[in-house]
Structure formats: structure tokens, C-alpha cells
Design a protein around this nucleic acid. Structure first.
Length: 480
RNA sequence: GGCCCCUUCGUCUAAUCGGUUAGGACACCAGCCUUUCAAGCUGGCAGCAGGGGUUCGAAUCCCCUAGGGGUCACCA
């Protein structure tokens, strides 16, 4: 066990989206590679927006993806005493001060700056208040916030594993708030206190935090510490190049799961979003990535996520997955589609597994898998319109199907090889090509023009159902 | 608007120290295979944002421009 410690610190204001998940993944890859500790922290200082439901969903999503953490979850909401103690210390040491400006007063200043088209910086109104003035303001009923004294010269340099050294002029920063008037810490402060107290050694997070990093570094400096090493990973953008949000459709892990994506596929896809092991390999498991992962190889460019490639990857995993596991994963989708009510048992489960086995080859998601399985459970399906024209509305098809039904009925045993042999004989005797019989038969027993090998389907369905469906189709054609 | 980051096919990406016909994957197109649909195989289309330098030689180093993103809250 190395002493490397990383943390993933989501705020529970929504479901875990693909960007957050990818950040968690990179933390995971990095820390597992070096044998360090993965800490989960819930940044819930914003009581208004944080919801307990989201906390559970967040953790469920991480577990579903296989991103297990070693320590935590820690909750910022339970660590208020720490933040207040540190803030008090800064106050006593003269590195921070109470500010009594009201929200309205500040807004006025901001508005003025805007009309002059200048950047607004808090002017430091309360930076050097006398004890008397403070008493007076307090007696007026004014509530105070605590602001950090930011040096007005010099620069703050952020050391970043991915971007190198990034320098910010302190004069561009103002005395920002570290404790709000309701006594709660701001993110920039709480996050630093926690990272320091939890002995985090590497902060791997999204690039949107880069601009705030100098503020955090200034906090650490004021408290007498140095910040850990940073790694700001590029953002994941929606297809329209904008920041991910709800209006972009499925972006949360939960949604991807519900749409029938396998966790391994999602992991594989996210791994390649902003990182590449080099070489031509595209398909690899999380353990393989762990063994070669490095922050230096993480890209600097934001990536647009593309469900098309994810879908391709998913279809690959569906094809290669362990059948037993696939059957388990697909269960909720079959139930949702009402192909059956409960988890099938005994022979029913065997049948279910065989259905999946024959159908998995052409399903890109678990939803499609259940879709493609429909006619194995439903007798009263409708015939595909295009197929009816192509396969049913031809001379002698009805008689042909009836004839085939009769022949199949006479068979003693019924396997895919035997059925195929029988069809060959029928076609030879009638002097027609195999396709002439196979096409309408396929439509008759599945309602569709595409799908698995016909004789495979017939074997699984069994002779009785096959014959029944041929007859049903014949009747249907008659009524056309 | 200030500050910060970024810029290789439509998308994800590769290209040890500058020397490559700029490679792969998805998608798309064509062909092969085939009872269908897929899968698979083969081939094709398609990119170094633009402009200046430095250099014998630049996708790679420097500068400028343009574009994209982020951030500037008593949100995280």
C-alpha cells in the first residue's frame, strides 16, 4: 500500500453523469495503478440543493460501474466544526476578516463595474475595520461573512500533472468569501480543509475547477500548508460542444444503465475519452487500463461524447459477455417488456438463456436484446409490413407454408439439423430455391424479415409452435 | 468583458529526441461471405484551424489571429 491518496468529491445535486463518472474512473485507474487509497467524499455544503436520494444514487452508480472506493464516504455537512475552527484560526492570525457588506451593496458594485465594462473585484471595504465599527455594524443587525485576505501582488502557480505550471496573477483575484453569513463554508474553503485533513496527495478533477484552484491554493497557504498535486482532466462536452446538461438526453450513468448499456462497455468507452494507452487496441477491461494508466498521457482537449461509438462498444460486449452474466443483466429488461413476470426458474431459465444466446449476436443494447426476443415469448405478434409484401404476397406461398407444416408434423425428432434437412428435401422436390421457402417461413414464425438462423429459431421454438405459426400465417394470407 | 485552458478525419484518438505516403477505431460507402439481418473480412471516403517565424527539415518549437471551453456567486 502506497501513501498515495485520491478523492472523488461529487456534490449530491443530481445523478452521476458521464463527466463525473469519467473523473471518478481516472481517479480509480490512477490510484489502483499505484496501490493507493481511493476516498469518496460528498460535497454537500449546499444544503439547499443537496439531496439524500442523490447520495444513494451516486454510490449505487459507482458500484454498478465497479468503481469501488476504499474510504468514506465523508460528508462535508458533518464536518462544519472543522471549517469553523480553521476559519477562526485565520481570523485570529489576521489572514481573514469579517465583512459586513450586504448582498445588495455588493450587487451595486458589480453593476457599476459592468456598466464600465470592467471586471469586478471586491474592493476590500471591510478589510481594516476597527473593533468599534464592527460592533456598530453588528448592533445594526448586520450579519458577517468571512473573507480571506488575498495578497494584491505576486502570482499563484498551480502545478498540474496534465497541464504543467499554470500561473495566475494575485491582483486578478479579490478577497473571496470562505464562510457564508449562515455560517457554512464555501466550496473553495471546505474543499481545501478537507483535502488537507484527509491527506489527499493528488487531486484529480474536471478542468472546470482549474480557474478556482489559485483561490484554493491561497487558502492552503494562509493556513500554512501546501496543496497536493493537481491533475485537471479535460471536460466531456455534449454533441453540440456545450457543457453537459439534462436537455442533452441520456447523460447520467443511471440512464445509460436503463437504456441497456453494460457497465464494462461504459467503462471501456469512458476510458478512451481523454486517454489512450497508445497502440491500436480499442477494447480492454478496466484492469488492463489500470496496469498502464498514467496521468501524463491524459489529453488536454475536451472530448465530445458520442453514443454511436458507445453503442458499438456495447454491442461488442453483449456478444462477448459471459452468457450467465448477460442473462442476469438482461432480466430486468425482459420483465419490463413483460416477456415474463418473474425471474424464470428451471427449464424456463434454460430456455431464457438459449433465447439470449441466439439473439445476442445482433443486439446493440439490452433493450434491443429483449426486443429481439419477443417472438420467443409471444405468439400473437404482427407481421412486418414490408415482409408481408415481399414474402407473403406471392403465388403459392400459402400452399407452400401449409405443405411445410404438414411435412414438419410428420417428423419424429426435431433438431435444427433435421429441420434444415427437411427443408432442403422439400425444396428439391418442388424444384424451388431454398430462399423461396425460408423467407415466408421466417416471417411466419417470427413476424420479421431479419434475425438469427431460421433453423436455430425453429429448434428453440419446438416443432409444435413452428407448425402452429406456419398454419396461422397460411390463414392470414388467405384473408389478405 | 478580465483571467485561465485548449485546437490532428464528422466523432474518439495515435504519431519516443522535429525527418511518417499523418496510423487506428466509430460512423458512412462499396465488395466478399450468407436462407434473412447482423457479425466477420477486404477496400474506399475523410484531418494537422489560419498566418507568420526558427530550422536543411515542423502536426511536433516560438509568436499572432481566429474558434471552442472553463471561471470570475454568501453554487459546488
Amino acid at each position: 500500500m502506497s501513501d498515495v491518496r485520491v478523492r472523488f468529491a461529487p456534490s449530491p445535486t443530481g445523478e452521476l453523469h458521464i463527466g463525473g463518472a469519467r473523473t471518478a474512473l481516472f481517479n480509480y485507474l490512477f490510484v489502483r495503478r499505484v496501490g493507493g487509497t481511493f476516498v469518496l467524499r460528498i460535497d454537500d455544503t449546499d444544503l439547499e440543493r443537496s439531496k439524500e436520494d442523490y447520495i444513494n444514487k451516486l454510490m449505487a452508480s459507482m458500484k454498478w460501474l465497479g468503481l469501488e472506493w476504499d474510504e468514506g464516504p465523508y460528508f462535508q455537512s458533518k464536518r462544519m466544526a472543522e471549517y469553523n475552527r480553521e476559519a477562526e484560526r485565520l481570523l485570529n492570525e489576521g489572514r481573514a476578516y469579517r465583512c459586513y457588506c450586504t448582498v445588495d451593496e455588493l450587487a451595486a458594485g458589480r453593476e457599476a463595474a459592468r456598466t464600465e465594462n470592467k471586471a469586478y473585484l471586491y474592493p476590500g471595504t471591510c478589510r481594516n475595520l476597527s473593533a468599534e465599527t464592527e460592533d456598530k455594524l453588528r448592533s445594526e443587525g448586520r450579519k458577517a461573512v468571512i473573507r480571506l485576505k488575498v495578497p494584491d501582488s505576486g502570482a499563484t502557480v498551480v502545478k498540474d500533472e496534465i497541464r504543467g505550471e499554470v500561473s495566475f496573477e494575485n491582483s486578478d483575484l479579490d478577497d473571496f468569501i470562505i464562510i457564508k453569513s449562515n455560517g457554512l463554508p464555501t466550496y473553495n474553503f471546505a474543499s481545501v480543509v478537507d483535502d488537507l485533513q484527509l491527506n489527499i496527495t493528488h487531486i484529480i478533477r474536471a478542468e472546470e475547477h482549474l480557474s478556482n484552484t489559485p483561490r484554493q491554493q491561497l487558502c492552503a497557504l494562509a493556513m500554512g500548508y501546501e496543496m497536493p498535486i493537481f491533475a485537471h482532466v479535460p471536460m466531456i462536452l455534449a454533441p453540440d460542444r456545450s457543457k453537459l446538461s439534462k436537455r442533452h438526453g441520456a447523460t447520467s450513468v443511471e440512464e445509460f444503465r436503463d437504456e441497456g448499456f453494460l457497465p464494462e462497455a461504459l467503462i471501456n468507452y469512458m476510458t478512451l475519452l481523454g486517454w489512450s494507452p497508445g497502440g491500436d487496441k480499442e477494447i480492454f477491461g478496466i484492469d488492463e487500463s489500470v496496469s498502464v494508466f498514467s496521468l501524463q498521457k491524459v489529453n488536454k482537449t475536451a472530448a465530445i461524447y458520442d453514443t454511436v461509438k458507445l453503442t458499438w462498444m456495447n454491442s461488442h460486449y453483449i456478444r462477448e459477455y459471459d452468457l450467465e452474466k448477460l442473462a442476469e443483466s438482461a432480466l430486468p429488461f425482459f420483465i419490463r417488456k413483460e416477456l415474463f413476470q418473474n425471474r424464470p426458474a428451471g427449464d424456463e431459465f434454460l430456455y431464457y438463456k438459449n433465447v439470449i444466446k441466439t439473439v445476442r449476436e445482433r443486439a446493440k443494447t439490452l433493450v434491443e436484446l429483449a426486443d429481439a426476443s419477443e417472438y420467443f415469448y409471444e405468439d400473437q405478434f404482427v407481421y412486418e409490413e414490408k415482409g408481408v409484401k415481399k414474402a407473403f404476397m406471392k403465388e403459392g406461398v400459402r400452399e407452400l407454408l401449409l405443405h411445410a407444416a404438414g411435412e414438419l408434423d410428420l417428423m419424429n425428432t426435431f433438431s435444427r439439423a433435421e429441420a434444415e434437412e427437411k427443408f432442403n428435401v422439400i425444396c428439391e422436390n418442388l424444384e424451388i430455391s431454398a430462399g423461396r421457402l425460408i423467407q415466408p417461413t421466417r416471417l411466419a414464425i417470427t413476424g420479421r424479415m431479419g434475425g438469427p438462423g431460421l433453423f436455430e429459431i425453429m429448434e428453440l421454438l419446438g416443432r409444435e409452435k413452428t407448425v402452429e405459426r406456419l398454419k396461422r400465417a397460411a390463414k392470414y394470407i388467405e384473408e389478405l
